[in-house]
């Protein structure tokens, strides 16, 4: 079950303070990197919600992110909705699509679930790549940003936009944490541990999976909306299965099933990409080696390793990680 341990709360506080301070004082490039981290963090948060706590390892979250981006662009540009309404519509639509995928894939498990979600991902990619409705391989441009001038905010200002994305990340985290503490979240965790027993207790498993996948998809859709707003351009590449694969790498790198770990993973991944690519174009190889080391160490990602080390040390001395939430 999900718990906000003291370590996790401290980590969240440090990440939040670090992000706010960095965002307040850094230059344009730094803001771009921070925005990139925030958007990736929202995506991996959505994936960890279902993969880490529900055992639903998905390879379609990139496509769901793309669905959010395309839906936002088309609702705002083609249907002329206000960007705020288009955002709500895109997130809701992505959630509905994800719930449908979740309901269809609910009876499959493990590798079959992964393959089923990959199939949906590829169908989505093919659709936007081939169809002129979605701009084909040219994608869609002139994606607008919401107008928040009524509250004195200009999202065309890079710093304001970065904080917009950070606020969205905070909201996504709160939603994910709330879901995990709710009956739905508890049942989803139970399904991961023993689906047969939960059915025998009276739970309709596919419905729980569909709703959980839908909520996760809506969060991924939010990441897509922000990605579209960031570059104000979207292309089918956003829906490629490699985006989903990358998100899975980040979740595993950070710590599957910790909710906080993937945030750390997103930070590490984007920093590595920028720092290592300055020295070599083969930065993926470096990330790959780190991932192999993490997996081979049998630690649950970088953050899982830190949690484990500190809990072991705590076990031999003063407890350092008491549970804030009492079962």
């Amino acid at each position: 079950m999900f718990r906000h341990t003291r370590l996790r709360l401290i980590t969240l506080a440090l990440l939040a303070i670090g992000a706010v301070l960095y965002g307040a004082f850094t230059g344009y490039f730094g803001l771009e990197v921070l925005t990139e981290i925030a958007i990736l963090a929202i995506l991996v948060l959505s994936l960890d919600l279902v993969a880490g706590f529900g055992g639903m390892v998905s390879l379609c979250h990139g496509a769901l992110m793309g669905t959010g981006a395309y839906a936002f662009a088309m609702l705002a540009s083609d249907l002329g909705l206000s960007p705020a309404a288009a955002m709500a519509g895109a997130i809701g639509l992505t959630g509905a699509v994800a719930a449908l995928i979740g309901a269809i894939c609910a009876r499959s498990h493990g590798i079959y679930f992964i393959m089923a979600t990959l199939a949906f991902s590829q169908m989505g990619y093919s659709l936007v790549f081939e169809s002129p409705w979605f701009g084909g391989d040219d994608g869609l441009s002139d994606v607008p940003r919401p107008d928040l001038s009524a509250i004195g905010l200009d999202l065309n200002d890079p710093r304001t936009f970065t904080f917009w994305c950070l606020a969205a990340l905070a909201l996504a985290y709160l939603v994910a944490a709330q879901v995990l503490r709710s009956g739905m979240g508890r049942s989803m965790v139970g399904l991961m541990h023993n689906e047969k027993r939960l059915r025998a207790l009276g739970l309709t498993a596919w419905r729980v999976k569909a709703v959980a996948f839908g909520i996760s998809g809506a969060i991924a859709g939010l990441a897509g909306v922000l990605a579209a707003q960031q570059t104000q351009y979207i292309s089918p590449g956003l829906m490629a299965w490699t985006v989903s694969g990358e998100a899975l790498v980040v979740v595993i790198l950070g710590g599957l099933g910790t909710l906080v770990g993937p945030l750390v993973g997103a930070l590490l991944f984007v920093m590595l990409r920028h720092e290592v690519s300055a020295f070599t174009p083969y930065w993926h190889a470096v990330v790959g080696m780190i991932l192999v080391a993490v997996v081979m160490s049998r630690a649950n990602g970088v953050y899982g390793w830190i949690e484990h080390r500190l809990s072991v040390r705590g076990a031999h001395g003063k407890p350092i990680e008491p549970e804030v939430e009492n079962a």
Binding site: S182, G183, S187, V208
Partner: peptide, 9 residues
Amino acid sequence: GTGLMRDPL
């Protein structure tokens, strides 16, 4: 077991 607001535990 399926609500979204309250922690049943």
